[in-house]
Amino acid sequence: MRVPFARLLRETPRMEITRRGTGEEDLLVVLGWGNRPTHEHVAWLLTRLLEAGYRVHAVTIPTNVWDFDDQYLAPLDDYVSVHDFDVVLSHSTGGLIAEHLAERHPLRNVFLSPWWGVRTAGRIDPAILALFERLPTTRRLYSPDLDAGAIGDLKSPAEAELGPSGLSPAFLATIRDAQTRLGAFDESDVVFYTPTDRVVDPAAIEARAPTANRVRYDGGHEFFASSGRNAVLDDVLAALDGGPDAVTA
């Protein structure tokens, strides 16, 4: 989205990548919007991946971009080009980024609640949303009204409040544009999701990914912040290792 210079704030999008582990296989993990490796439940997931023998490259994404390709894809293009990744694990907004990244590099994906569609039913009038997206500003004007339970029943309200302050029209516009530009689904990929997700649109996931490539779980938007996470983790690790045929759920 082209945003007039006068409407830009002094907020520079910065992508951070942290590397941990001494395992034999490099794993790129693209975190969701607002997630950081130091967050309690994200740290739980990353620790389990390290214990499974991966060298984990965890990507913390900026939360207010206005050019999806330049500010999300370009930095990862460069990074993936100089590392030996076969598979990517991604969550939410990270799942949208990872899907586009796989169109540029030979990567297999395991998605966790990917943000492939904006959920509007019962919460946001689509006409109002369309008007909001057209506002030429990066100012964070909208804060989703979600309780911690929508993220996961282990998520504390205090941790939920530590997230970003809101969404800007420019950010939402570039996300929606990226969602419309998704290519064909790769049948070697696996998608984990909950049909009751109140953060992203589960209908968009079901419309895009074939049944054989979808694994449903009971929990919130972050399986790793939900009480049934250990059982889901087993299938996530199987999917990382062997794709859809290896998942037992």
Rank of each mutant, 00 (worst) to 15 (best):
135 L>R: 11
136 P>A: 07
156 S>R: 15
135 L>P: 00
153 D>W: 10
139 R>C: 00
146 L>A: 11
155 K>I: 09
150 A>T: 08
130 A>G: 02
136 P>F: 04
141 L>H: 07
137 T>S: 15
138 T>S: 08
128 I>W: 06
154 L>M: 14
133 E>L: 12
130 A>L: 00
150 A>Q: 11
142 Y>G: 03
151 I>E: 13
128 I>C: 03
127 A>W: 02
124 I>M: 14
147 D>W: 02
154 L>Y: 08
134 R>N: 01
144 P>R: 06
154 L>T: 04
139 R>A: 14
141 L>G: 07
154 L>P: 01
126 P>R: 04
133 E>Q: 13
136 P>Y: 06
150 A>P: 00
142 Y>R: 02
134 R>I: 00
144 P>E: 09
139 R>E: 14
142 Y>C: 04
148 A>E: 15
141 L>P: 08
130 A>K: 07
145 D>E: 14
140 R>D: 05
147 D>M: 04
138 T>R: 09
149 G>M: 12
153 D>C: 05
154 L>F: 08
139 R>K: 12
130 A>Y: 00
147 D>R: 11
150 A>N: 07
130 A>P: 01
151 I>D: 09
149 G>T: 06
137 T>W: 11
149 G>F: 02
134 R>Q: 12
156 S>F: 06
127 A>R: 11
127 A>C: 00
150 A>G: 08
143 S>R: 15
149 G>N: 11
124 I>T: 14
129 L>E: 09
152 G>I: 06
152 G>P: 09
129 L>K: 06
146 L>Q: 10
155 K>G: 00
125 D>H: 11
125 D>L: 06
139 R>F: 04
150 A>S: 14
153 D>K: 05
144 P>I: 03
153 D>Y: 10
156 S>Q: 09
150 A>E: 10
149 G>V: 02
124 I>Q: 06
155 K>R: 13
145 D>R: 15
140 R>I: 04
130 A>S: 12
128 I>V: 11
124 I>P: 03
149 G>R: 13
132 F>S: 05
132 F>H: 06
153 D>G: 03
133 E>Y: 06
147 D>C: 08
138 T>Q: 09
151 I>K: 02
128 I>T: 13
145 D>Q: 14
146 L>S: 07
147 D>E: 13
128 I>R: 14
147 D>I: 01
140 R>W: 00
153 D>S: 04
153 D>Q: 09
142 Y>S: 07
130 A>Q: 10
141 L>Y: 11
138 T>G: 03
153 D>T: 05
156 S>Y: 05
141 L>Q: 05
155 K>N: 12
131 L>Q: 10
133 E>S: 00
152 G>W: 08
154 L>C: 03
127 A>Y: 04
154 L>W: 10
145 D>F: 03
135 L>V: 13
149 G>S: 12
149 G>Y: 03
152 G>V: 05
138 T>L: 01
144 P>D: 07
124 I>G: 04
145 D>A: 15
141 L>I: 03
132 F>E: 07
129 L>V: 02
148 A>R: 07
131 L>K: 11
125 D>M: 03
127 A>Q: 09
150 A>C: 11
131 L>S: 09
155 K>H: 05
134 R>F: 00
134 R>D: 05
128 I>N: 10
142 Y>N: 01
155 K>F: 12
